[in-house]
């Protein structure tokens, strides 16, 4: 019964977020253009790398784009999720947050609904990236079933990252503070991971960081599914880690909003 209320309340928070998105056409356009730029820019700029047999060994493919596609998927998800908290701060400023908090809803529905809306947007974005990449000649080793697993992993990652962002936004009360913290986190997270650069080519210290970076946990199974196939021993750890990450981050953000004061 309680779970049912939580789900319907979350749905209506989600419904509002989606309505808002559909009105703001520019956001939709940018969500489409951004990964396109990444794919074309990175694919072409770095394409020369794979002519070198050493990098071929590091990347595990002749096609840098094939190496990059999972990285771009996770990066898009990362950027979509990490700024999710901004909508909370905006709602706080317009008073809409208080309106929701004063309503007899399960308060956890606020983060759950918002995170789900963010995740759905990212899932569309990832599907779009996959379609463009396929059109540009990327071969998915595991095909369509593999892509569904990619979506699952990416969704868990999005729940995790957006959960962290919303939990931060419930504590940090200004746009500026949230932007500062997320900017501090995102770029180092990208560069200290295997998203755009193979871990094997990193110096030892960076490799150590990259190994424990949540981004690496998300990218590795995706890359395995795109480049190698159903190599489960490379897929399980990431999938499991993403499951924990998502559960923990959503639980923390839900707790933050269920407090008596937000």
């Amino acid at each position: 019964m309680k779970l049912c209320t939580l789900l319907t309340d979350s749905y209506w928070v989600f419904w509002r977020e989606m309505k808002r998105l559909l009105v703001q056409r520019a956001r939709i356009a940018i969500a489409g253009i951004q990964p396109l730029i990444w794919l074309i820019l990175m694919g072409n700029a770095m394409g020369g790398l794979t002519a070198n047999p050493a990098t071929y060994r590091l990347l595990g493919t002749e096609n840098y784009l094939e190496f990059m596609t999972p990285g771009i998927m996770i990066m898009s998800t990362l950027f979509g999720g990490i700024f999710g908290g901004i909508s909370v701060i905006w709602d706080r400023r317009t008073g809409f947050l208080n309106k929701m908090l004063a309503a007899p809803i399960k308060r956890a529905a606020i983060p759950v609904g918002k995170i789900t809306a963010i995740t759905l947007q990212s899932a569309f974005q990832v599907t779009f990236i996959a379609a463009i990449a396929a059109a540009m000649g990327v071969k998915f080793a595991t095909g369509v079933p593999g892509f569904f697993l990619i979506l699952c992993i990416m969704i868990l990652f999005s729940y995790g990252i957006a959960g962290v962002s919303l939990a931060l936004a419930s504590v940090l009360r200004s746009h500026e503070a949230l932007m500062a913290v997320t900017n501090l986190l995102t770029l180092p997270m990208v560069f200290a991971s295997n998203a755009i650069f193979p871990r094997e080519a990193m110096p030892a210290w960076l490799k150590a960081i990259a190994t424990y970076n949540p981004l690496t946990y998300a990218v590795t199974p995706l890359r395995t599914l795109v480049l190698e196939g159903w190599v489960w021993e490379k897929i399980w750890p990431g999938l499991l880690a993403m499951g924990f990450f998502a559960a923990a981050a959503v639980a923390i953000s839900a707790r933050q909003f269920a407090r008596s004061e937000v």
């Binding site: 319907t8 419904w15 509002r16 808002r20 317009t94 008073g95 208080n98 004063a102 309503a103 007899p104």
Partner: peptide
């Protein structure tokens, strides 16, 4: 919360939604 209506000084309506959509959302939240 179920017994009260709260109208803050903030004009807490969503500018991106229509009047009906705002009220529909409110009805669902209650």
């Amino acid at each position: 919360r179920a017994s009260l209506g709260y109208v803050s000084q903030d004009l807490a309506v969503d500018d991106n939604l229509t009047g009906i959509e705002n009220l529909t959302l409110q009805a669902r939240l209650y």
